[in-house]
Design a protein around this nucleic acid. Structure first.
Lengths: 203, 203
DNA sequence: GAGATTGATTGACACTGTCAATTTACAGTT
DNA sequence: AACTGTAAATTGACAGTGTCAATCAATCTC
């Protein structure tokens, strides 16, 4: 029952407006800035209005996480239309997104802010991950080691990119946050892992 | 000027007592539980007493992070005395620590709670990382590719273990948090990377 | 001993999330 | 058209939080 006409005073439903403002605050101030009251304030409603749409703060951020994951996966599709290697598209998008939208990426993996038990969120990630694994298999069925080692490889790749994205902000790896050098480094790491494992090394 | 006798009413200096209690709370409730007031309460002092020892909450948690890193590195040493491969000791300790002390490990990398600009903290991590790289070189100077690729490999290994440790809690990798299967998976991933790159594959 | 300094206490302020009670505005029924 | 019911927004309150200012006590220094 989506009511196209205004329910009360908002042209667009308040819920979507709240989420919009929440993203604006997130991008600017980070996860800690996304308070219920700040979002309400930015939307011009009373501090308790959001309660009608989100049970609590965690649920707001969980719904944001679903949108962030969508956003990220849409970037995978965009890149995949150019890059023939779909597994590579996943990994490069993952890294690029973490650098382009650092606060969104941070929020996504904060399990105190996001409820990863949420069925849709969990299902979307699981689906993406399985698709990633499939694209790895499709990429090159002929692997040095056989069997389920392909899943180990997938886990290693995903974890590596994710870990690198997160640790870069602590400056252990590379002093400055230069995106270009980061991508070059990612590329080298992927070549290392992919090139060494697969029979015909890519790129 | 460490005053061995009681400054006021505490046998041991209040600062160390505060940190002790803070760790107890951290281990039980996670980073969000470590509030200035809760720590003060647990130490039996007024809510503003900690301000004399920590400028703000972030500084308390930053000092905790220094201790956590020490703790983690001491585990590396312990393991290194058994495991001849020191680089491997780093990686396995890193993972095991993240599973044994999940909340401490979480806190360590939370840049909103910990100030990674802190000179001592940054220096300690940098030193450990360089030692890790050195142990990688010492492990096997003969690498397939030459030059600074050893640093790329080091980054890849560290990032992979860290990323795996963090993502395990979101259940993408392995549904249940079984430590044993986790270690087996880590082992497989390390063999993948190390065994493929180095001339004589380890383990 | 007098004075100064360090450390702890109390009280306050501006925030936060969340709940209860209330008011508002719309929709459907008769 | 009036009534009623329901959903949504408001107001007010409560218990927390971090942090600051003023106060108070105890110790150290000369």
């Amino acid at each position: 029952m989506p009511k196209p006409s205004s329910t009360h005073l908002h042209q667009t439903s308040l819920k979507t407006s709240l989420i919009e403002r929440a993203f604006a605050i997130l991008d600017q101030l980070g996860p800690n800035g996304v308070t219920i009251r700040a979002v309400a304030r930015a939307s011009g409603v009373s501090h308790a209005a959001p309660a009608n749409h989100f049970a609590d703060r965690r649920q707001l951020q969980t719904e944001m996480a679903i949108l962030i994951l969508d956003h990220l996966l849409s970037d995978v599709e965009r890149r995949s239309s150019v890059e023939p290697d779909r597994a590579r598209a996943y990994l490069l998008s993952l890294f690029e997104y973490s650098q382009s939208w650092p606060h969104r990426y941070d929020l996504l993996w904060r399990k105190d802010l996001v409820n990863w038990e949420h069925p849709q969120l969990a299902a979307n990630l699981e689906e993406a991950y399985q698709d990633f694994i499939q694209s790895l298999i499709r990429r090159s069925p002929r692997v040095n080691s056989g069997g389920e080692d392909i899943e180990t490889l997938g886990t290693a790749l995903w974890a590596m990119v994710h870990g690198y994205a997160q640790l870069r902000s602590t400056r252990i790896f590379e002093a400055r946050t230069d995106k270009a050098t980061g991508e070059r480094r990612i590329d080298a790491m992927l070549s290392l892992l992919l090139g060494a494992v697969f029979v015909h090394s890519g790129s």
